[in-house]
Amino acid sequence: MLRLPRLRYLRPGSATEAAALAAEHGVRAMLVAGGTDLVPNLKRRQFEPEILVQVPRLPGIRRENGSLVLGATVTLAEAAANVELVAALPGYAEAAGLVSSPPLRNAGTVGGNLCVDTRCNYYNQTFEWRKAIGFCLKKDGDICLVAPGSPRCWAVSSSDTAPMAIALGATVELAGPDATRTIPVAALYQDDGIEYLSKQPYEVLTEIRLPAEAGLRTAYVKLRRRGSIDFPIAGAAVALKLDGELVVSCRIALSAVAAHPLEAPAAGEFLAGKRLDAETIATAAELAAKPARPLDNTDLTHFWRKRMVRVVVEKALAAAAAR
């Protein structure tokens, strides 16, 4: 049986206080919200903090100046079922509703899903398994077991909601001990399996602002082995604006094909001004899929995943267009 390490658990009253505590304890502390990603990782000793700082319950979902603003501790289940979100940004609600399984969506939060640790099947294993195969770059070791010649970590960004938030041009608010700042979700990530977030570890992600322009069409398509539980092994988020039959703008972002949510600007640029039909969709999907580099570190094979990226993009484009 895998057990949690001994931890001090702190429950500050506000996000600022939480950031202050996390900053005070530095590397000895980690922030926790729903815990659905962190707790299993603690059990397998992916992280070895001495202190957990609880992110306090933050305000829920509200409409503000044409945006939908989600408190970071809104659960994935709440987001998936929220009437306003489902009506205005169905792609985001869809992505939230496709994370893991119902019990985990009841605990997991929208902020937590943006911060979800990158995954690799050499990394998300018990301490004993990792020791047996030889530790990797991301934890306790000095080589990448997926790409041994590589100087970097290729763990996979496995958030379902991040690509959708990026496609929407969403922003997040980060609370530090002394000040808060707002950055685009796209700027929250960096292309590294270890240092995958650009924020300071002590900064508390407090809210997500999703621009909800009228007429925006959104869709998220997730590829995984089973209809529930599994992390994405490829995914496509689309935010599409049409004028009649012509594409005004289109943003596409992919999940689970790189160490960060992968934007596909070339596909969006190609589509601008064009009519969406089978041919343009196929070309756009090919452009979007080109930079995807799946490796042998998730479920199923990377040969197959690479080929499926196009398929999920096509499906997401078609679904968005049909909304």
């Binding site: 089973r226 529930s228 599994d230």
Partner: peptide, 11 residues
């Protein structure tokens, strides 16, 4: 696939 998350069986 040494865990019940990765070792797939149908839901």
């Amino acid at each position: 696939w040494p865990s019940m998350l990765e070792y797939k069986s149908p839901t």
